[in-house]
């Protein structure tokens, strides 16, 4: 198990430092009979799944089957949505995520999230990285400067922006903005990274760059990635899980190693989907 650093503790680890890679399956996130309702309408129901440490798990399936909603349960962003109800159990590193009294802020620091549309704050590039760090108790200027450089290098943005850290982040291209957002999440040293179709809002070229970056993160972080792109899932994921809408609610149809799901699916629905016949 990775030791969880105290927020104010030393922040010396390199974001791309080698960590236990995805070898023996060792669950870090356990999801048990998780359901989510918007009002009375179920988004997905009865999902039971465990996510292995240091591995990349791809969530695939057609639109509207609750994959994004599923991700937002894991860092309790569902709290921000009015009328949203979650039942079931989620355990991350032995922490009961859905328990009412937990420190949500602490939870969200430990679980990074990348959204479909790049969403840097309307601040400068530097402030985008510095602001969350300061909020989480890292105030030493030198240390901040160092983390900024390390994370920007880690996402391959350093050489592109090192001379204009003071310019607005919103002036960057879409692909650069998305890499900045990944850097912003990495700077907080998350234990788990949630990625909600991180390439789908980008042009093909930037999408390729971001995908390469994500592949580079593989084995270093536990990553859950939602994607519509089966080829991408097949290329980069260790594990895969297929969601599908049944009886008006999303359900988990099949989960397993990417190899098994794509080459030897058990469920006929999975077989049809991965061979491109449905969805």
């Amino acid at each position: 198990m990775t030791p969880v650093e105290s927020l104010t503790g030393p922040h010396s680890r390199h974001p791309l430092e080698e960590r236990p890679a995805c070898r023996a399956p060792q669950p870090i996130v356990e999801i048990d009979r998780l359901s989510l309702y918007y009002g009375d309408k179920p988004a997905f129901q009865d999902v039971t799944l465990s996510i292995n440490k240091g591995c990349m798990t791809a969530l695939v399936g057609p639109s509207g089957c609750g994959k994004t909603s599923f991700l937002t349960c894991l860092n309790r962003l569902t709290d921000l949505i009015a009328g949203c109800r979650v039942s079931g159990q989620i355990t991350i590193n032995a922490l009961d995520v859905l328990a009412p009294g937990i420190n949500v802020i602490q939870l969200r620091r430990r679980i990074g999230m990348i959204f479909q549309k790049p969403n840097p704050f309307p601040l400068t590039i530097r402030r985008n990285l510095e602001f969350p760090l300061r909020e989480h108790g890292i105030r030493d200027r030198e240390q901040i400067t160092q983390i900024i450089e390390t994370t920007l290098r880690a996402v391959g943005l350093w050489d592109e922006v090192k001379d204009r850290l003071g310019s607005p982040a919103l002036a960057l291209s879409g692909g650069q903005q998305q890499r900045l957002c990944i850097a912003r999440a990495l700077a907080l040293l998350p234990e788990v990274l949630l990625m909600d179709e991180p390439c789908s809002a980008l042009d093909p070229l930037s999408s390729g760059v971001v995908e390469d970056l994500i592949v580079g993160l593989r084995g270093r972080y536990t990553i859950l990635i939602v994607t519509h792109n089966l080829a991408q899932a097949r290329r980069i994921a260790d594990y895969a899980a297929l969601f599908w809408v049944q009886n008006g609610a999303g359900r988990l149809i099949e989960a397993g190693t990417a190899k098994q799901i794509f080459e030897n699916p058990r469920d006929p629905l999975t077989a049809a989907y991965v061979s491109g016949m449905r969805g």
Partner: peptide, 13 residues
Amino acid sequence: ASYRLSAAALGLS
């Protein structure tokens, strides 16, 4: 709304 979501996802109060 993305400002609020991304801020929350970064664990900002």
